[in-house]
Nucleic acid binder design. Structure first.
Length: 278
DNA sequence: TTCCAGGTGGCAT
DNA sequence: ATGCCACATGGA
């Protein structure tokens, strides 16, 4: 059990990073630290006064990359607040420690196919159960066993009956078909999967945008879901079905960091509506 | 009971 | 190109 200590970490908050809907496999412990699994490595993270302590498996380089510690988020926040001074500053203040993780592509494909027409607690439950019955055992931490997300080969070999305990609903067939498509793409020599995301079964415009943002770290990608429609209406006056208008606005005002802007705003409006339900 | 959740695919205009 | 609607599941 190694312990990694990283000091002088800025623009960083574990809850805002792990509980903002970009990932689904990290959970808060009673002591305020977070435990979870990524890239097959199990770890616990605690953060206090600019010092990040990571215990478990995986080396420092791996976690630095995953947490995107090489990027200056302060610079991006200043850029966004300057480009859109009306609602961006309070949104940034609400989630000043948000970062976009560098997650594995295949996992985000699985995650966001499951996310469609679903809510975050149930998405987490489905992914947990999927890993438990189809993934590889990855280790134990604080009395809890962790399992990795199944590889495409594994998932492609499963039937809907096999996946029934995961309670995926109608999404089970999308996962299986996507795994099979993924395999055949690999077998036909496709190396750049980023061109193949659109067109996978169960992947429409919104899921594709999430995969680009969270799985390919394309910070310009701007996913539009029910919450974003709500906020674009409330903050900027858009009709809720004017997706094109919202995309143009995001590109114009948030530019290459539209996806990060989306995360600040998404987090912000959820904070508001959780506290004061309409 | 009905509505909703980080929507998509299929089918009808 | 745009507008409906069924789709599984579980919590409010």
């Amino acid at each position: 059990m190694t312990e990694i200590v990283i000091e002088n970490v800025k623009d960083f908050n574990l809850r805002e990073i792990f509980d903002c809907g970009q990932c689904f496999r990290w959970n808060e412990e009673d002591d305020g630290s977070y435990s979870g699994i990524a890239m097959g490595k199990v770890a616990n993270m605690r953060f206090d006064g600019g010092t990040l302590v990571i215990s478990g498996t995986g080396d420092e380089a791996l976690w630095r990359d995953y947490l995107d510690l090489g990027r200056d988020y302060g610079e991006i926040k200043a850029f966004l607040a300057e480009k859109e001074p009306r609602h961006m500053p309070p949104a940034i203040a609400d989630g000043a420690g948000i970062r976009i993780l560098r997650q594995e592509l295949w996992e985000t494909v699985i995650d966001f196919i499951i996310s469609q027409n679903n809510n975050i607690p149930r998405i987490k439950g489905c992914i947990e159960k999927l890993a438990e019955i189809t993934g590889e055992y990855a280790g134990e931490l604080r009395g809890k066993k962790y399992y990795s997300i199944p590889e495409p080969e594994k998932l492609a070999s499963m039937s809907r009956e096999d996946l029934a305990p995961v309670r995926l609903g109608y999404r089970d067939k999308y996962l299986i078909e996507t795994a099979r498509r993924w395999l055949s793409l690999e077998e036909s020599g496709v190396t750049n999967m980023s061109d193949e995301i659109a067109g996978l079964p169960g992947v429409g415009p919104k899921v594709e945008a999430c995969i680009r943002l969270f799985g390919l770290h394309d910070l310009a990608s701007f996913p539009i879901d029910v919450w974003v429609k709500r906020l674009m209406n409330r903050f900027y006056g858009f009709d809720e079905n004017d997706k094109k208008g919202m995309e143009d606005f995001a590109a114009e005002h948030f530019g290459e960091y539209a996806g990060l802007a989306q995360q600040y705003l998404f987090n912000h409006i959820r904070q508001i509506d959780m506290k004061t339900p309409v």
